[in-house]
Design a protein around this nucleic acid. Structure first.
Lengths: 141, 141
DNA sequence: GTACAATCTCTAGCGACTAGAGGAGCAAGA
DNA sequence: TCTTGCTCCTCTAGTCGCTAGAGATTGTAC
């Protein structure tokens, strides 16, 4: 009745690589599917949906543990989604602070490059900056 | 004559953890220091300088391999520093593209959160967005 | 029938550490 | 002098999220 697929088909449909699908099964993110007589995994549409969800969330930078939680919540439709919202906000916070730190870093590396006169290494300002912490623009490290 | 230090002192001076110092020695980033009679590592000032350099570069996001190259160059003061400049520029490029991708991500996660009405999970827009790829703001994933 | 692709399981590797076991060394106080 | 407790030693294994490879089996197309 149902149109079951081999792992390769699922991979092509979802963009998740074959070993990664097996890996997700191993860590319990994707339930173990039934097998064919020849011991091959046979997937239905639900597995495809779940993998798409996982892939998308991973692309958005959610960690596997967070995705596990999201999937758990997704399976209880009657519950409030406050927790889901909180998870997403937590994630947004992490992204924002990563951007902030990277931007500070960029400024520092840029100023390092600007001061480079392309002379001999003995006078290299880049090596200099990396050597002496007092020269930092930013104090937190 | 020289004031040699134990690994713990070096750790405190540089902010690099003791096991990390040993790890750097293991991967050849920091030369193996002489030992005391009781087989303990004894470090001089140069090791402290080198570790500060490494730490700072790591904090600026340089990979260990890049740091290895930088250190090699730093030890040949008469050579041109064009390569050092190139390494730094390469790194800047990587930082810039990381920021770009994170910013795109942030926009997407933000819009996901904004659409959340905090109702039941059955209608959760966050779960929805993660499930259905067509809803993405950005096409590249 | 035969070639070749796809799948299976299992293990090991990546980067940059971190954690822990189990043992030895060392300085200070009783 | 002895003991307590800290630091240090080596070694192995774990982290995260996969990826790569070996070697065996199964399925498919000609």
């Amino acid at each position: 009745m149902t149109d079951l697929m081999a792992i390769g088909d699922v991979s092509r449909k979802t963009g998740v690589k074959v070993p990664t699908i097996r890996y997700y099964e191993g860590i319990g993110l994707l339930p173990a599917p039934p097998r064919s007589e020849g011991n091959r995994r046979l997937y239905g549409g639900k597995a495809v949906d779940r993998l798409r969800f996982i892939r998308h969330a991973r692309e958005l930078g959610f960690e596997v543990e967070a995705i596990r939680e999201l999937l758990d919540f997704a399976e209880q439709p009657q519950r409030s989604c406050a927790k889901v919202d909180a998870l997403a906000r937590e994630h947004l916070q992490a992204i924002t602070s990563r951007i902030e730190r990277l931007t500070a870093l960029k400024v520092e590396v840029e100023s390092m490059i600007k001061s480079c006169a392309k002379g001999r290494i003995a006078k290299c300002r880049i090596i200099d900056t990396l050597s002496r912490h007092e020269h930092c623009l930013h104090a937190e490290h």
